[in-house]
Structures are given as C-alpha cells and as structure tokens.
Design a protein around this nucleic acid. Structure first.
Length: 532
RNA sequence: GCCCCCGUAGCUCAGGGGAUAGAGCAGAGCUUUCCUAAAGCUAAGGUCGCAGGUUCGAAUCCUGCCGGGGGUACCA
C-alpha cells in the first residue's frame, strides 16, 4: 500500500472481483476480503524517508505524491547499498564461472558418444551460467553507476550507509508500538487508503471487508503459541519454524529478532476467518510466484487442525515488460494504474468522438453522454484484456492492447448490446410486452440457428468458469455469442423481416442476446451502454 | 541442485484425450440507397519446441531432452 499501484496490481483486483461475482451468481455465499498490505517493510521505508527526506511543502500539498517519491528514493538507496554489498561476491562468481567455462572448453572431448554428449551439455550449461552472471554483473554495475553519477543522490547514499538496517528498525519499532512511528503510520495510512480507494471506485470494485495485515498483528503472538502448544514448531538458527513434509525450507513464523512474518499473518487470517465466517473454501487470488508459500501455508493450516475447508491458491501469471522480464515501473516511467485508466478512457473518448462525428447530427450524443460511454468502454476494455487471458499464463504488458477497442474486446460485446438497443429504439419496441406475448422463436437462417445455439450455452460457460476459477472461459463465451450476433445482424433484418412472426422471433432473439451479454458482462463487472 | 509454470500462425494468445487445430492484431481483397462499418465476408498463413511412450484416437496424458520464466530460511 505504501508504494504507488502499478499495472501489475490490476490482475488480482479484476480477477478476484469477477470470480467473486460469478460464484455469488451461482448461489454461493461469498465474502470478499481485501487483504491489504498495510503493515510491512514498505511502511518502514516511508517512515524512514519521511524522517530524513520529506519536502514538507510538497507533503502538505499532495501527500500521496510525496510519499510515492519518498518510497522510490528510499528504494533506490536501499538497492544501491544492497548492490554494493553483493558486488564483490558477484564479481568473484562471474570470474569463477567464466574460468570454469573456459577450462571445460579446453578439456579433451571424451571418445564415448554418450560421454561426449554429456560433455557438450555441461559446456553449454557452464557457458550459459557464465553469461548469466556476466549479465547480472553488468546490470548491477550499471545500476550502481547510475546512482554514483548523480552527485546529490550519491551523496545521500553515502550519508545513509546504514539505510537498510535502519528501515528494518523503523518497521520493527512500528510493530513494537513505538509512539512516533505509530502516529506517522496513522497519518500515512488514510492517505494511502484514499489513493487506492480512488482506483477501486473507478473500477467499481467493492469489498465486504478490508482487513489489512495490521488487523491481525495483535493475534500473531498467540498464533505462534498455539502452534507451539501443538508441538508444531522448532527453533532453528534462532528462528521459530514449522517444518513440513515435502519442503526443504521451513515456514518461518517468527524471525530470530522476534518479528513476525507474512506466514504468521496468513495463519492468523485463516484462524480469524474460520472462527468468524466458517467458510467451506478460501480462495487466494495471488501471483503464482507465491505458490510455494501457499503450499506451505495450507499444509501448516491442516496440521493445525483446519481440515474441513478447501484452500485454493487461485494463481495468476506475471505481467511482463516488453523485455520479457516481470513488469517494473522504471525510473521516470509513470504508467501507474491511475495513468493507465486515464489512458484507456482518453483513447475510448477519442474513438467515440471520431465515430459519432460521422453520424447524422440528429443521431449524435452530447459531450456528457460521450464521456460516459468512453468511461464504460475504456474501463471495460482494460478489465477484459486481463480477464480474457488464461489467468495462469504470464502476459506481456501492452498499453495498445489493453486499450484496444476492436476484435476480441469488451467493446465488441458492448457494441453488440448497443446494436440490439438501437433496434428496439428505432422500432419503438416494447420489449416487455413482446416477452409476455409468448411468440414462438422460429429458426430459419443458419445465422439464427447459430445464435440460438450459443444462447443455450450460457449456463455451461458460467459453470465452467466457476469450476476452475477461470473467467476467461466466460469472456470466450461472450465473445462467441457477440460474434454470432454480428453475423445474424448482418444477414437477418429484424425490423424489416418478411413476416410478423419472423420479426417477433428475431426481436426475441435480440432480446435474449442483449440480456445474456449484459448479465455475462455484469459477472465480469463490465458495464454496457444503450448507444455508443 | 531441488520444486513450480510455460513453449500452438509473422506478433499476442485461446483450446488441456475425440471431427479438416482456432481467434485477435499485422498484411491481401471485397461489402455501406438496408435496424450502429467499434461491423460483416473471402483468401492466405501452423511438422501445436524435439524425441519416445500410453491409447482405437495425443496440441491435450506419461518419460526424456532442448529453450524461456519463476521460486527456493528469517521481504510480501
């Protein structure tokens, strides 16, 4: 929470929100809880930053921006010292790896075919390893020299040589109840919350609970005691550990300095949820890189006695940068989440304006209506871009793709919906009356058949999406349905149908399509508009 | 080293035992006196990383290999 939200944070929010809606729609009693990171080292960082580097004027004017700046500055200084500490070791490793690779290349190749192959492979691996180390060494050196070439920054780095330890101390002090840090935290937290809330509001995302990590802090000591009472913990290298079958490393629940960790918090969270909500299942919508952690957490929770509950790590892939590495906001690169939403809405508005201008003046929307459409379309495009991806795979972040309004996008589906509404409006159709009249649906054209078949598969799509917690199965369905409708729209005149029977039948198909699309999008928390 | 995930069209990705493997984007072409062309349609584009195996049948399951990403004792 103490750092600005960036594009990587959108997946958890959007996927979790969609799953929550889908499961609820199927009749489950769902509790959504935003497990906010409001208690970690990041707060130690901004507390440290505030103490040493704050620009009071800037903070008074725009606290969040200033806190963001402080976070980035402290991060950079910490990384610098980390890097300096790692440098000699890395240099040595790189040199050693290089020497190994060179030696292997000069060694005689075994005559035995199998052995020769093995030898070849070993060389390849050694060369790769050497290259990898050389690359990371170069990266590190570049990073360090960036700081060193910036006089004022380098000066700060020199002055704050102990920053890493100090940040941990600030965090520890906060946790220990230090009054000053506590009051700083209480001052920062509402700012950070408000900043995040702004994003949630724009996304239309709501939670039943937002019990952050800090909420569980008072329970952590008891959790460790309870585990100890069960004989589950061992002290190893000064840390309080839970050793679990099938895992090399233990789950540490209390550090040697006495501090608790997220594993402890997560156990406390399970305890709390089981006591207060008695769920049948707990889903964790979290990046797949935390898979190991959850495997351990679930195993520990079972051992602790929570057998009657299904634990699910609903993991999702990493958002990658164009370089194929996990996406990071680079220095100076300000594509935060807020900027991304702005971008999506601006792009949509541009398209709305361009297309609406081409229409008859009498059919055009006023600027307020256009802005509303742009908002719905822009935000929808963004969410859909994420949801339509198989959640388990990584994906390459592309602004262009995220704000695209053509092809397999929410826009396409919203457009199909708006076309239906256009027909109803133009024809002056009282759709409720038509539904009540109970006219028959008559299938004559292939396009009608295709559309009708698609309509019948809605429940299957929802059930499939819920079964594996995969919203993309629902987006696939909605896209296919919208495609069927587009063909139908092209080939089968509705208002100018050949007979009243055919006209009523087609109107009913339109109605069913619109309702299905709207309901489906609603499950993804994507809105529709009557005209666009 | 050990563990997890991925490799499908030029690019980004669906499909995860059953028919001639799909879409979007990019590129070629066509469609607007007709309910919204943010659309529709046509053609082109693939030894589904490689090699074995299981099966009546494998992109899909198993094994090995190659390539990429991630995790791996006190960050979350």
């Amino acid at each position: 929470m103490a750092k600005p939200m960036h594009v990587g944070h959108i997946r958890s929010t959007v996927i979790g929100d969609a799953l929550q809606r889908i499961l609820q729609f199927l009749g489950n009693d769902v509790v959504s809880d935003n497990h906010l990171g409001d208690w970690g080292t990041q707060f130690g960082m901004i507390i440290y930053g505030y103490r040493h580097f704050v620009d009071s004027t800037a903070f008074a004017q725009a606290p969040i921006a200033e806190l963001g700046r402080l976070y980035r500055l402290v991060r950079e200084l910490m990384d610098y010292h980390d890097g300096c500490a790692r440098l000699p070791d890395l240099k040595q490793q790189a040199a050693a790896a290089r020497a190994t690779a060179d030696n292997m290349r000069q060694a005689t190749v075994p005559t035995d075919k199998q052995e020769a192959k093995k030898h070849d492979k070993a060389i390849k691996q050694a060369v790769n390893r050497s290259k990898e180390l050389a690359d990371s060494l170069a990266d590190l050196q570049a990073k360090l020299s960036r700081v060193e070439s910036n006089r004022s920054l380098h000066k700060l780095a020199t002055q704050h040589a102990e920053i890493n330890e100090s940040v941990l101390q600030e965090t520890a002090k906060l946790h220990a109840g230090d009054e000053e840090n506590r009051s700083l935290w209480e001052q920062f937290l509402p700012q950070c919350r408000a900043d995040i809330q702004e994003i949630y509001d724009r996304l239309g995302v709501k939670f039943n609970f937002e019990l952050g990590e800090s909420f569980y802090h008072p329970m952590l000591a008891d959790v460790v005691l309870a585990l100890a009472a069960k004989g589950m913990v061992k002290i190893s290298e000064g840390a309080t550990c839970v050793f679990l079958d099938g895992f090399d490393a233990p789950m540490i629940v209390r550090k040697k300095d006495g501090a608790f960790l997220y594993a402890t918090t997560d156990l406390a969270t399970i305890q709390y949820r089981m006591k207060h909500w008695q769920p049948d299942a707990i889903l964790y919508v979290v990046d797949f890189r935390q898979g190991d952690h959850f495997q351990k957490l679930f195993a520990a929770a079972r051992q602790w006695g929570y057998h009657q509950v299904e634990f699910q790590h609903v993991s999702f892939g990493t958002v990658m940068g164009p370089d194929g590495k996990p996406f990071r906001t680079r220095a100076g690169d300000t594509v935060g989440l807020a900027g991304l939403l702005d971008e999506a809405e601006a792009k949509a508005l541009e398209v709305v304006n361009r297309l609406d201008d081409q229409r008859e003046p009498s059919e055009q929307m006023d600027s307020a209506a256009r802005r509303e459409v742009a908002k719905v379309v822009g935000i929808g495009a963004l969410k859909y871009a994420d949801l339509s991806q198989n959640r388990t795979s990584d994906y390459e972040f592309s602004l262009e793709k995220m704000v695209a309004l053509e092809g397999n996008t929410a826009t396409y589906i919203q457009y199909a919906y708006a076309r239906v509404q256009g027909i109803f409006k133009r024809g002056g159709i009282d759709i409720q009356q038509l539904r009540d009249a109970g006219s028959a649906i008559v299938i004559a054209d292939d396009a009608e058949r295709q559309l009708a078949l698609q309509l019948l598969q809605f429940d299957e799509a929802i059930i499939d999406a819920a079964a594996d917690y995969r919203p993309n199965l629902l987006t696939n369905y909605l896209y296919e349905l919208a495609r069927s409708y587009a063909s139908f729209f092209d080939r089968c005149p509705v208002l100018k149908a050949e007979s009243d029977n055919q006209r009523d039948s087609r109107l009913l198909l339109c109605d069913l399509t619109a309702r299905t699309l709207k309901q489906g999008l609603k499950l993804l928390n994507i809105d529709v508009v009557d005209r666009m």
